[in-house]
Design a protein around this nucleic acid. Structure first.
Lengths: 190, 190
DNA sequence: TGCCAGTTATATCGCGCCGATACATCGAGC
DNA sequence: GCTCGATGTATCGGCGCGATATAACTGGCA
């Protein structure tokens, strides 16, 4: 069973709106995920090739225009299989939806995701962070005697960062729940 | 010119205190860097091998004890070259000290680092984050029209996270400066 | 006494993804 | 006409992760 990796998902999601060429895919992804977390061409182009062979996307490439002798831009387009795959992924909400490397990609596609799935993913992520919180607290308690000031400070800051994200998630979960409570079909048009 | 990667540096630093075997190195690194950010054995053992061939560390391995027939644990020990290399790295404060993947490792070794270098690294990191802040703000301004609620929220949260780290750094920088101002040899005893 | 599970311990393999690099075209400013 | 930066496609080397294999020791429990 072929698990869709984050990169593939990100590309499928970007291509859902309309066909694009590689450079543009990267730009959009960079814009929605932030300046860091931008995927490199060293991942993008091989991934696109792979996705073509897997039948998820097709290529519009007319070759160099004989009149201008200029290479036409390659436009990638979702196939039916790609669309199906994307839909399946967007409906899934397993651990691969809230892992560190996957969560923000999934989150960036929340407007393509139904409310129930959104909620499950947010809660899953929150659960993961709770474990983390526990681990860090354990570590902080266990170290006590040894460990210099800076190592301790690093831990403390890490702990705070995770706590912040939990607060953020709690807020989002609350929003999601109240939206669901409000009406059966929450803001599908909004 | 062979640039010391983060992993090598982390191992050198861990071995500085006393000779250890692989498993213990990983445990200590996990403890000082946090439950996430723990390096895998798939990186550790190859790195140790490489470092042996590079002459940075040596191996104490007596082979299986004939009486118990039990494999003795392999203890890795810094060579003079390794000690020198570590000292050089600890005195350096270039971009490779404040990159995302390197900063926390360098920070965890701050008690082995002199105050002036600590300050340069903290300021370097702060500079890097300032750029980031600028990029994100640019992005947020540029998107405005397009972009759904969730993408915007992701950006906002990312921005906040970076702002938090900047505050944290400012505090650390302030401490470092006041310690330096206070006396020439700042709190070497803690 | 015997068994099972968890921890300690070393090691390899596949591979995803990044950073560097190369090459080519285009538009804007000088 | 020239240079510079953005657009655009593509490959290569390699780092480090996750999964996996192996094996001895340790503690709990029956």
């Amino acid at each position: 069973m072929r698990r869709t990796d984050v990169l593939t998902l990100a590309i499928l999601g970007t291509l859902a709106e309309k066909p694009l060429h590689g450079y543009e895919i990267r730009k959009r992804l960079g814009a929605s995920l932030g300046p860091f977390r931008a995927l490199s061409y060293g991942s993008l182009y091989p991934a696109l090739k792979r996705m073509v062979t897997e039948g998820l996307i097709t290529v519009d490439d007319q070759g160099p225009d004989p009149s201008t002798n200029r290479r036409s831009r390659i436009a990638y387009r979702l196939t039916d299989a790609g669309t199906t795959q994307l839909a399946e992924e967007l409906a899934s909400s397993g651990a691969s939806s809230w892992d560190d490397d996957a969560f923000d990609v999934r989150f960036a596609m929340f407007d393509k995701t139904d409310s129930a799935t959104r909620l499950r993913i947010l809660e899953g992520r929150r659960g993961r962070l709770s474990e983390r919180l526990e681990e860090i607290s354990q570590g902080l308690k266990a170290m006590r005697e040894r460990h210099d000031r800076y190592t301790a400070e690093l831990q403390r800051h890490g702990l705070e960062r995770v706590e912040r994200e939990v607060e953020w998630l709690d807020q989002l979960i609350e929003n999601e729940r109240s939206a669901t409570r409000g009406k059966d079909d929450p803001a599908s048009a909004g």
